[in-house]
Design a protein around this nucleic acid. Structure first.
Lengths: 262, 262
DNA sequence: CAGCATCGAACGAACGCTCGCTTGACTTTT
DNA sequence: AAAAGTCAAGCGAGCGTTCGTTCGATGCTG
């Protein structure tokens, strides 16, 4: 199973390994005993549900579609999860775990230089979201629509990665190699740049941009914005008045019209 | 209706005005004749469907929920659209139109200076997406899941705004005030920064960041990245090898297992 | 021949959508 | 001016369909 494992991180982000972890985490609800059978079928289920959901949305994906795509009967599916929501949760958990695990495995020498550390975080995140692209898209698109446990976990995960960026920025500011007005805000701005890679990957593909190139360009862009300028700090004075017309105090806040029956 | 209309653009982005435009565009399918009645009810329908959909997704929003929230009976709803999909389309069209219309109304003096033009585009986009926040979130989250016409329109709209950014960047490069390696790519990177404002607006709200502040900060960040540096062009050589472990040539690309019946 | 794994018909609930009916403001008739 | 007629507008029970889920029968394997 392991063979060409690069860092000593001990984590593997291939489909099969990820499904193995799902199996272990949900041993109690998964009714199939033999691990190799269970994991093999989980692979087919997860692969199918990611494909179908990323095309039409999780809610629009029916278990009959999933059954056909995975090659497992309706009843068979219920040996692997006790309801549609659980299936969603299985995937979301795995994504959140993978992100934190991958980004925390920063090599010690890299951590020394804030600029290099930042570039490493960006490159690692892009590489991870490239390997697990369908998972990331799924988590990003479906996280909002579901039960509090999943929502909380997703938000927490996002904040955790944001904090990692903030810490690096702060270290850079202290070391004098970054010039940042608001560390937290700038850290927040980096996240959407990383998300764009997997959310709109098709667009980049079409333009011949691959993961490594994307990461390098984003690093360049971000580092350019952070690098202290010699003098002439021309902060944008304030945005040019770009107020949109919004016809007086319209938009009645309480348009409750009485119905016949309540 | 009009009164405090700032630019001479002639566009109004209040809920009622937007529904008025929807009414005009769909006169043929909307069965209600009297404009003031139709627009008033469209307001209640659109407001309700945006609220419900942004909470649980459009697909998960049932017409019964919508009927209750809007205060219009099931049958009544069908006087305003001939199917759930049409309702989705009505909103998507309106968002795409508003974006292009707003961004094309750039004042002539602003266009002269690329930096100012860029800041104006950012500020205008943020201001528009602030005014129409639920619409933007709806369009962003639901665009993928629907019929080719809607998808095509959404992609085209995104490319159009992207091209506007690219043109400004190009003008700035020619004028010597921007230093950009790849104009198209950099233009692409700006979009997600704008989207983050409405997609994660709750997060920014919680931190006391309002629309104007957000736009100003993003402008600063982007302009800092574009401003030519005196010397020392330290392009990131290549990303530090951030390869994730992906257990040998796993991930069987064709895990088709035969079923009993095809 | 156990017993684990899988199957797929069947079920109740909930969906999008329809349609015959009621309502009420306005027009016409007497 | 009162009565009768008209029709746009709105209503909600009910239709057929499809959903998530269940469960007894049926392999398959050691």
């Amino acid at each position: 199973m392991s063979e060409q494992r690069q860092p000593a991180a001990g984590a593997d982000y291939a489909l099969e390994a990820l499904c193995g972890r799902i199996y272990e985490r949900h041993r109690d609800t998964i009714k199939v005993q033999k691990p190799h059978v269970a994991v093999a079928n989980l692979v087919r289920i997860v692969e199918a549900v990611l494909t179908l959901s990323n095309r039409h949305g999780f809610h629009a994906t029916t278990l009959r579609d999933l059954s056909r795509a995975a090659g497992i009967s309706m009843g068979g599916l219920y040996s692997y999860f006790d309801g549609k929501d659980t299936l969603l949760l299985m995937i979301l958990e795995q994504v959140a775990d993978a992100v934190i695990e991958a980004l925390e495995a920063v090599p010690e020498p890299v951590r020394a230089d804030p600029a290099e550390h930042l570039a490493w975080l960006i490159a690692t995140h892009v590489a991870l979201s490239e390997t697990m692209q369908p998972w990331f898209v799924f988590a990003y698109m479906e996280a909002k629509a579901f039960p509090p446990p999943a929502r909380k976990a997703a938000v927490a995960s996002e904040l955790a990665t944001e904090r990692m960026f903030a810490q690096v920025l702060e270290a850079g500011v202290r070391a004098g190699c970054f010039s940042v007005a608001d560390v937290d805000f700038t850290a927040t701005l980096i996240k959407p740049l990383l998300q764009d890679w997997y959310v709109k990957r098709g667009k980049y593909r079409k333009r011949g941009v691959n993961a490594a190139t994307y990461a390098a360009r984003v690093s360049d862009f971000v580092l350019a914005a952070l690098t202290p300028r010699p003098a002439a700090e021309s902060e944008t004075p304030l945005p040019p008045k770009a107020s949109l017309p919004v016809g007086k105090a319209s938009t009645p806040r309480n348009p409750t019209r009485k119905r016949k029956v309540d």
